[in-house]
Design a protein around this nucleic acid. Structure first.
Lengths: 352, 352
DNA sequence: CTGTTAGCGCATTCAG
DNA sequence: CTGAATGCGCTAACAG
């Protein structure tokens, strides 16, 4: 009559395979209608206190809890914030912790979503994810390290560490330019004058800014930039290792190297070790990011710290403000970086 | 006619506030019905190749992507795995990374869910979360550090680091007893004899096992346990700091402290610093977990490593197997812990 | 105070 | 080959 599969009566005998209790079942068990149950759950007025108590007890007994999905589909607001990431790695999970900080006590729930780092889909995950969850599952989203920011989306969205010069989207970034300067100024103070750089991915804004910082610091010290001292590392170990070797095997090698990120710096450390160059005795190395591994390196890496967790916190705060319809005092937030001095840098020696 | 709110025709003028494109709009734009669009998206047979191409181009142009929520509600399978956590802190995010590892290449997507560490709801978040997402949003769930495991749920569920003696639920745990022994044996080998402990949450099995390990190691060395050397830290910074202060301000303080988790150990480090006690010169400290932060501490923390990430990986593997209806070779998996020696422990000095 | 009705966005029969 | 109808679980109007 209602279904094509044979059933005893109108109620098909194929419930969800999982043990989920639905509102239907609560209503049936309590002998009331679904809407009454709904009213009880949402504390709407217009329910007899007897009925209320009875339904409540049934809910309790059956262990019923409203499906997030069904509720989201029905409601415009979900009170859920999404954190959209390409993959769950050190950076994005750190942002996630910050988002959790910001969400505490606000009544918002947090959903982190990732399709599992598929590399075949080269670009545009951010737009896809956004479409999949915005407006239905979440009220707004924090985009972590999106490579494309022309995601002119209507809904509330904040990008953390976006990788291109940004548009109208709200963003939170570390002060990459400042960080680059800090790194090089530190080396200058230690007496270094020939300072090399292993640069980052050419398509990323952050890489360019770090390099700018390098150039500015040298310029401020009245030093000319020797372009042969800049080698491309692409933010990845292998190219970085090659870049470091190139820098260290010329006739007049630098006494210090600033690597555009920690992974590159660690590769530089390895390259130096292979060449028998002592760090920090003969060569000083500074990285960027302060990933946990940097502290474990031998020697422990001096690096520029990005306040990742704080970035997640601020981004989430901005997002919540947006959701609530408040005006943001500033759309683009840039947080200070700080130098973390460890054992990979030292006063320039006389050997080289 | 169809709606109570005045509209031009059957189509109400109040779309979702966000910029989401729905299948409706794609269908209208392409001049076909929704079901045809659906068929195109899901690659169902029975669509003319012309129609297919046309609809595809419209989808492309509008940047349409199916709503995760609507799809989930409709389908039984969602190909999404849930990771349910009380809060996003170091432990749970590490598990998350492991889950991401395990999910790569499987076609499953990952959704991590947390209601934001509400402390007022003392117990039972795991059951609530499960009800909210199982069967609708996700095909199965990894429960991180649930305090209650009698969650006799029908659907596929695996618990990581469950905090009570377990039931029929599949679980993945670190060898907490062994870890506690490792920590204390290390301190004993360094010559320490008065060893304090900042204990964990009394309601958690893992905390008890770690304490047992402490007691066993001391007993094996022929040492009696001084009960005043055990102070409650509850696995959290503030109580742990207080516990550490209590241990360090008595007349005959311990020369070494084993903290039940890294957060407590870090708090202990801070307490020691505030009291002007040098680590490891005057006091050795061992933690438990090896969260990323422990390596960054000053001094870097010696700790017992739980293979957290691997635990997340294994749990997710087990979950996927369950979802696929495979028999699990073993329901309860226990992974070995290992000692990671860093700079917070040293041979007992003569000062104290 | 309670139940009936409609529909959120989508996938699936089943007619045309 | 295409589209109208149905329902997933839930909430919000409305009518009784």
């Amino acid at each position: 009559m209602k279904t094509s599969t044979p059933a005893v009566n109108g109620r098909p005998e194929r419930p969800r395979p999982s043990g989920r209790v639905t509102m239907q079942q609560v209503a049936a068990e309590a002998g009331v209608s679904v809407s009454t149950v709904s009213k009880v759950i949402n504390g709407r007025y217009g329910v007899a206190s007897e009925t209320f108590d009875h339904v409540t007890s049934v809910i309790e007994r059956l262990g019923y809890e409203a499906s997030l999905v069904a509720r989201s589909l029905r409601n415009t607001r979900t009170d859920v914030i999404g954190v959209l990431v390409a993959d769950f790695e050190p950076f994005s999970t750190e942002v996630l912790k910050g988002a959790a900080d910001a969400v505490h006590g606000t009544g918002y729930e947090l959903v982190a979503y990732s399709a599992g780092g598929r590399v075949d889909e080269h670009v545009g995950w951010e737009r896809r994810y956004l479409s999949r969850v915005m407006g239905t599952l979440v009220d707004g989203a924090v985009l972590v390290t999106p490579t494309v920011t022309d995601v002119h989306y209507d809904g509330p969205v904040v990008a953390v560490d976006p990788h291109t010069g940004s548009s109208s989207l709200a963003t939170v970034t570390a002060h990459n330019l400042q960080g680059g300067r800090l790194a090089v100024e530190h080396l200058l103070e230690l007496g270094h004058r020939r300072i090399g750089m292993v640069t980052g991915r050419p398509d990323l804004l952050s890489a360019h800014l770090r390099e700018q910082g390098y150039r500015q610091a040298l310029a401020a010290a009245g030093l000319a930039v020797d372009e042969t001292l800049l080698q491309p590392g692409a933010f990845e170990p292998e190219p970085a290792r090659a870049a470091a070797r190139a820098l260290l095997t010329v006739s007049d090698p630098p006494t210090a190297i600033f690597a555009a990120n920690d992974l590159s710096a660690l590769a530089t450390l390895e390259a130096a070790a292979e060449l028998g160059i002592k760090v920090p005795g003969q060569l000083s190395v500074v990285g960027f990011d302060n990933i946990p591994e940097s502290a474990l390196a031998q020697p422990a890496l001096t690096t520029v710290e990005q306040p990742i967790r704080q970035m997640g916190r601020e981004a989430t705060r901005m997002l919540i403000a947006q959701i609530r319809g408040e005006e943001l005092p500033q759309i683009h937030l840039t947080l200070d970086t700080t130098l973390v001095v460890r054992q990979s840098t030292a006063v320039r020696g006389d050997r080289r």
